[in-house]
């Protein structure tokens, strides 16, 4: 069922959403919980945050994509041909670059230092490729993520042509590929943690591998996996909205922004796969 083109009152409604404020409050409460070491406060913040996201998505699904933030915003923006929302997404991605660099840099430093010096407890070589990790399996998972990037960009190309059915098909494919990636990673974690004995504190018994190998592996791939999870949730929302006919040839910026995030997570994986699995 296709929505009619957005009208003036829809734009009015768009300005009054309380949900972003609630999301921000939830993040603030959760942050205070982390800093003060209070689990109840952290959980309360997470619940407020999740409720805010749910409320916002629910509100947004009730109406078609608003032109207010689409072409009009690009024209009104101080910056040529880039809407405020896209600029915001790129700024967030710049912070994500720094975030992942910090995690990878810390892991890499530990790896280089502990190979030679350091406390006796943390001595021992890093695992070589294929020694503990299943590189072919993750190679296949990498391929799945690349496929999902193709389907994502094809979804955007479809709605740019005004092709609703292709948009739905490709978004659904992206969503399913993302879930497949996460499922394989969950399988891998389960096998490594319980099968191989690669834990947060110990390397597999008898392997002689540095005990810091496990925590750095889980930190790097886990942070990435949580980003894929967030991407899958975003993809589920965009797909749902596409099936409700919420995007048009003129107004589909949410598809583009979700795609930017999705491709960024793919880019991070390209480096992580090389650094964690291949080197």
């Amino acid at each position: 069922m296709a929505h009619p083109e957005s009208v003036g009152e829809g734009e009015e409604e768009h300005h009054g959403s309380p949900w972003p404020v609630i999301i921000a409050v939830g993040m603030g409460v959760a942050y205070v919980g982390i800093v003060s070491g209070s689990i109840p406060l952290l959980l309360a913040g997470v619940v407020i945050f999740a409720g805010g996201i749910g409320g916002w998505i629910h509100q947004d699904l009730q109406r078609p994509s608003s032109p207010f933030y689409g072409l009009a915003a690009a024209v009104e923006s101080r910056f040529p041909r880039v809407s405020a929302r896209k600029l915001g997404m790129w700024l967030m991605l710049a912070t994500e670059i720094m975030f992942f660099s910090a995690i990878i840099g810390a892991s890499w430093t530990l790896r280089l230092r502990t190979a030679t010096i350091g406390l006796p407890t943390f001595q021992g070589p890093w695992a070589t490729p294929n020694q503990i990790l299943n590189v072919p399996l993750t190679g296949a998972n990498t391929f799945i993520l690349i496929c999902s990037s193709l389907t994502m960009v094809e979804a955007l190309a479809a709605i740019e042509r005004g092709d609703q059915s292709k948009l739905r098909l490709f978004l659904l494919a992206t969503l399913l590929l993302g879930i497949t990636f996460l499922s394989i990673q969950a399988f891998e974690y389960q096998h490594l943690f319980f099968g191989e004995g690669l834990t947060f504190t110990h390397a597999p018994a008898g392997s002689g591998v540095n005990p810091l190998y496990g925590p750095t592996f889980y930190a790097q791939t886990g942070v990435h996996g949580s980003h894929v999870t967030a991407g899958v949730l975003a993809m589920a929302y965009v797909t749902r909205k596409a099936f409700k006919g919420g995007f048009t040839k003129e107004n589909h910026e949410a598809v583009e922004l979700a795609g930017l995030y999705w491709h960024f997570v793919d880019v991070v994986w390209i480096f992580l796969f090389t650094i964690v699995y291949l080197i």
Partner: peptide
């Protein structure tokens, strides 16, 4: 991926300054 899938190649040049 950044140039083609994230369309940075087709965006105004200054946007690349952010990443």
């Amino acid at each position: 991926v950044v140039a083609y899938y994230m369309h940075l190649r087709y965006e105004p040049r200054w946007l690349a300054l952010i990443p």
